[in-house]
Amino acid sequence: MELIISSSIGVLTAGGVYLLLRLRTFPVILGLALLSYAVNVFLFASGRLAIDQSPILSKYGEATYTDPLPQALVLTAIVISFGMTAVLVMIGLGAFLEADSDRIDITADDGETEDGGRA
């Protein structure tokens, strides 16, 4: 099971990083989404894996529970990463609508202002 999880994290990270290095906004956003998955699972896994040990206290006597703290942290992280993705999407969309291009790189000809400084 541990191998499954760590390999999944690895594959998600690799996919995320590859897409992150693309030149257009949309794949970059997708890459970030993949990377968010990877990070969330990574954080979750830092509480170690457990099956059938949900951190819901049992009314029927003693039971073992998995580590609830990483879960609480990851829960908010999932929601926050949605917020981040949304802001990024909006920035990407805005940039595309304003400039009619969804490239993420400033190229030499559109980055330089007249006095030689950076725009």
Binding site: E2, G16, A38, A45, S46, L49
Partner: peptide, 24 residues
């Protein structure tokens, strides 16, 4: 980019695996 991505993915996977098989 592929090499960078595989490096990053491999590294993170190894890290995750390293802590998953140890207690905290």
């Amino acid at each position: 980019d592929g090499v960078i991505a595989l490096g990053a993915g491999g590294g993170v996977a190894a890290l995750a695996h390293a802590f998953l098989i140890r207690d905290i």
